[in-house]
């Protein structure tokens, strides 16, 4: 039996390994196409980690997170292109800082929208919550397409400027790589902080027994709304970064298919596993790049993968594989031993 601090120390260790790998990865990847793929993985991880907190820890499923992603992306795109926002800022305010401020405002705005949506919808349970968030995503898409004077309609918006710090522009894949992965690491760190805290425990408690959580003084509804808002804010950040990276944003990049795709990333990676989010995003992005060859059957393949994972690894690929490996090593038939293994892997 390990001392309790084990898991947290292990996570710090893994985070350092990840950071170290990230520093050296660009040396191995020379092609900018591969860097683009790696950057997309980073962007998606930011969103998926947040969504995993909602699905895996608070036990609430949302199929509307592409809308929050789109909200961040369009907020940034609209305010940095068609609106001449710079006149609102005092002349001493450095121009390069404005898009960053807008990203923060996008996160605030998306958080506020999520809050307003969350209050009524999170009173719903199970399938009804799924339907409500799905409906929200559809409405959002329609607004994007129809309100073309502001959003550019179905063609979307182009010419979103690159982000910059002073004269240093994040205008190449390598430069953006540094930005997105720093933010991704930060997201992972704060998520681990949250999970291993009073709030994280409250969320897990809600997932396990709402009645008991309530009795412990946890206002379950308020916690659900807060996690929902947090996951929306992460999605918004990912969206804004995406818009400033690709410089083009269309309604297609925040449609329901994308919402479903990120939920699949959560499930495949491992529900309730922060590391699983990273692996889920990596796997699905790599797969969708590989599966480009079979174009139309892409979706079929995704569905198949989801089915197989659900059948063979219902707790997600990463926790499932780890558990399988450890139980092979120890191969003890006793339940308590096996569940101890589960306890070690469940928080990965």
């Amino acid at each position: 039996m390990q001392p309790f601090g084990f898991r947290e120390n292990a996570n710090t260790c893994y985070l350092l390994i990840l950071a170290f790998t990230l520093v050296f990865l660009p040396l191995l990847i020379r092609s900018s196409y591969y860097l683009l793929v790696v950057n997309l993985i980073g962007l998606n991880t930011i969103l998926v980690v947040g969504l995993n907190l909602l699905i895996g820890y608070a036990g609430q499923i949302s199929i509307g997170h592409a809308a929050f992603f789109g909200m961040g992306a369009y907020f940034s795109a609209i305010l940095t292109t068609s609106f001449g926002l710079s006149v609102w800022f005092p002349s001493w305010f450095p121009g390069w800082l404005i898009p960053w401020v807008i990203i923060l405002f996008a996160m605030l705005f998306t958080g506020a929208v999520a809050y307003l949506i969350g209050i009524p919808t999170l009173k719903l349970k199970g399938n009804y919550l799924v339907m409500a968030t799905l409906g929200f995503n559809i409405i959002f898409e329609i607004v994007l397409v129809e309100w073309d004077s502001v959003t550019g309609g179905a063609n979307g918006m182009a010419g979103v400027p690159y982000l910059a710090v002073g004269d240093f522009y994040f205008n190449s894949d390598l430069r953006f790589y540094c930005l997105v992965w720093s933010l991704c690491l930060l997201t992972l760190i704060v998520s681990f902080n949250l999970v291993n805290s009073r709030v994280g425990r409250a969320m897990k408690a809600i997932h396990d027994s709402e009645v008991a959580a309530n009795t412990m003084g946890i206002n379950t509804h308020r916690y659900k709304v807060k996690v929902f808002v947090l996951s929306a804010v992460f999605a918004s950040l990912a969206g804004s970064l995406y818009a400033h990276y690709i410089t083009v944003i269309t309604p297609k990049s925040c449609d329901i298919m994308y919402s479903i795709q990120v939920v699949i990333m959560v499930i495949v990676g491992g529900i309730g596993s922060v590391w699983g989010s990273l692996f889920g995003a990596t796997l699905l992005i790599l797969l969708s790049e590989v599966l480009h060859v079979i174009e139309k059957f892409n979706v079929v393949a995704l569905g198949l993968i989801l089915m197989l994972v659900m059948i063979f690894f219902p707790e997600g690929l990463i926790p499932g594989l780890l558990k399988r490996r450890r139980s092979q090593v120890q191969s003890s038939p006793f339940r308590s031993r096996r569940s101890e293994v589960r306890s070690q892997t469940s928080d990965l």
């Binding site: 009073r198 709030v199 897990k204 408690a205 003084g217 807060k226």
Partner: peptide, 23 residues
């Protein structure tokens, strides 16, 4: 009992109303 939490975490949740750290 919260099934997916360790025994220690279970008891720690009990302190929820005596702690105040925010989100």
């Amino acid at each position: 009992v919260f099934q997916n939490m360790s025994a220690l975490e279970n008891v720690m949740v009990g302190s929820h109303c005596r702690t105040s750290a925010g989100f």
